[in-house]
Design a protein around this nucleic acid. Sequence first.
DNA 1: ATCCATGCAAACCGTTTGCAAGCAA
DNA 2: TTGCTTGCAAACGGTTTGCATGGAT
Lengths: 158, 158
Amino acid sequence: MKESKETFETIKKIFTEYLQSHGHRKTPERYTILKEIYTTDGHFDIETLYIRMKNNKYRVSRATLYNTIELLLQCNLVTKHQFGNNCAQFEKSFKFRQHDHFINLETGKVIEFCDPRLQEIQSAVEEQLGVEILSHSLIFYGRFTERPETVILEKKLN
Amino acid sequence: MKESKETFETIKKIFTEYLQSHGHRKTPERYTILKEIYTTDGHFDIETLYIRMKNNKYRVSRATLYNTIELLLQCNLVTKHQFGNNCAQFEKSFKFRQHDHFINLETGKVIEFCDPRLQEIQSAVEEQLGVEILSHSLIFYGRFTERPETVILEKKLN
DNA sequence: ATCCATGCAAACCGTTTGCAAGCAA
DNA sequence: TTGCTTGCAAACGGTTTGCATGGAT
């Protein structure tokens, strides 16, 4: 608990530094939103965050959420994903191991994974195309393999 | 030319078979849209396709385009991409080598590439998570590396 | 005191839906 | 003839924008 507290102080510092160096004001709303994002796990979309903050009795507008998220994207404290549906998903990204996503087409559930070979592909592409790669998005779509235990369980239930 | 004609006949056949086996009607609009998509290269979005068909004097509605694209997605004759911007991009996908995308953040230009190691990652993820992967999306974002020739060229221009 | 940031509501825009008319089966 | 499909326009929903008020500097 103490450690995560300290980590959040670091994050606040990063945000402060970013705001300062880019001539943006350090408003309480921006820090409230940062905190709200960093005290919750998993992915989220703007509407969910908006509802959650409203439930927590914060006075906040969607416009400010979009505005602040943009700043957090700029300083890499948040990452944006466009998973199939036309609703942007976000997640906090400070010091979390880089990872990619598997999406279960049947349930929409997201699982994270990490494979070092992606780095090799990235390097190869950089050389082949003569480019510098700044970020990436890898998403696998599929479904859970039917396992023996599951089949047996289903038989029992039927 | 002859070969590509024959290929398109094959594609029409695939579409026909799909429509028939799923109880969908074989309307002239659906074939017109299929042809329009397959006689143009590169990625496209619905609006672009709509404008293009209007310019070609076709009477078509956006609703039918969305409807037909859905069918073409179902039978894998078209692939859908969600590149950052909230506007779905599509591309024809019959018999084209599976590939992934690099997007130049400065110009928005898309380059395709292919790396066999992705298949290895896919197999590893399938085993690790106990899933079956049906499709994927890998996008690298970056910019062109400044090359010596480019620098020299710029100096000449200035 | 300045003028950027906020909250609110309206505008925007890609996509979906409702409906009457059309046409494949 | 039946009822799926079409074109059109309205509705929808996530995101952006315009504007008056508020607050960081």
